[in-house]
Design a protein around this nucleic acid. Sequence first.
RNA 1: GGCCCGUUCGUCUAUCGGUUAGGACGUCAGGUUUUCAACCUGAAAAGAGGGGUUCGACUCCCCUACGGGCUGCCA
Length: 440
Amino acid sequence: MTVTRFAPSPTGYIHVGNLRTALMNYLIARKSGGTFILRLDDTDRERSKQEYADGIMADLDWLGLQWDRVEKQSERLDRYAEVADELRQSGDLYEVFETPTELDLKRKKLLNMGRPPVYDRAGLGLSEAEKDRLRAEREGYWRFKLDQQRTEWEDGIFGHVSIDSASVSDPVLIRADGQVLYTFASSVDDIDMGITHIVRGSDHVTNTATQIQIMHAIGGTPPAFAHHSLLTGPQGEGLSKRLGTLSLRDLRAKGVAREALLSLMARLGSSQPVELKMSLDEIAEGFELAQFGAAPTKFDAEDLWPLTRARNQALPFEAVQERILGLGVPAEMAERFWRVASQNITTLEDLGHWWALCRDGAEPVIAAEDAEFVRQAVALLPEPPYSDATWGEWTAAVKEATGRKGKGLFLPLRLALTGQASGPEMAELMPLLQKVRAKG
RNA sequence: GGCCCGUUCGUCUAUCGGUUAGGACGUCAGGUUUUCAACCUGAAAAGAGGGGUUCGACUCCCCUACGGGCUGCCA
């Protein structure tokens, strides 16, 4: 039984980076008929907010990434305390007392000597008497004693990974104020909840080494790990600074379609071509972790637009009927309007532009050399309303009168009527036009 | 500074020592549509640099350069 989880901390909204992680875990579970758990890693009490938790769930809902169960770390504090006691007894957890300032000093000193800034384990050498004296001054906190060997695993994406744990500081698992830290809570949860596969960003590879050790210490068997590469911007720059503008809700507000987002994020960085899929089932079908590369992946939000366009153009009239009527399009014209406009939109918001053009006419665009031609042509155009035949009849008449044909005939007329060089099939558009501003 | 990982067409990537280095997106050019778009066909386009190993290296090893990550009493 496959069990995966998406474990965001509710300290912000979902962005493209998170989404990739969530999606991969979701797809792995779905592909094998397993369980997908949404786990809110909310042990950081100062930064975690209900508002963000709600936002994350709303975003996952929108995407259709349905979770089978929600877990909250804040509701499992007793369990963490219990496991922590076991680790204290086994000697895996030891008490330390350095202040942040002291630690900072130690780090700088080591760095100056050209040595790696690894915690010196001073706490391990403290006698009971010394600890008592320190406890009288301040609250102690707890570090996990890493075995300073290499920690290795077969990564689902990176292949064989080997981390030298001697180059990693013993992680703090429990703070002076008693707060349980992510590294610990997460390890306990993954074991308790029977997680079988963890996919997360490659920013966690070092964590994985220490968490594997923690999992062993609490008597668990580590799940299979896979670390996906991190996204960078189109220039290869780190995405973290720009993540604010790449939140799901912002993209959604800009009109990005969920199918576009899912289709791109499930394939970007893999050897599979990115093509529009209309359902998560279709997306899951070709999804293989092993097809993802380990190199940083460039993400360009612009790539979402062609997919969004393809998705919107594929929508049946019924799906947009309400929206179109909402624009004020008369019911008898609605279906034709969709047929005509749908091929020329990116987001559904663009429909408003086309309807405004039909209703109010467009500011004509007339090149200087076409001015006389357009004047002649417009004089031959009757008043609205128009029929299916209007365009053919009119252009034939204009051709007759001016001798123009082909591009020289049609493009100036299109520009005069719609103000744009590209757009819907003119013959189809004409019956929708209520006004032609070029007629003055 | 230390520890991980990475580097193939513009982009995402395939290639598990011998290939005309393949595909997809994008770009460009033709075709088609009495215009644009859509569509069809075609083209241009790549192994970071330097050393090894080998009959033979994109592929294995080392060095350099560059990119990303980690190096918190954050996650």
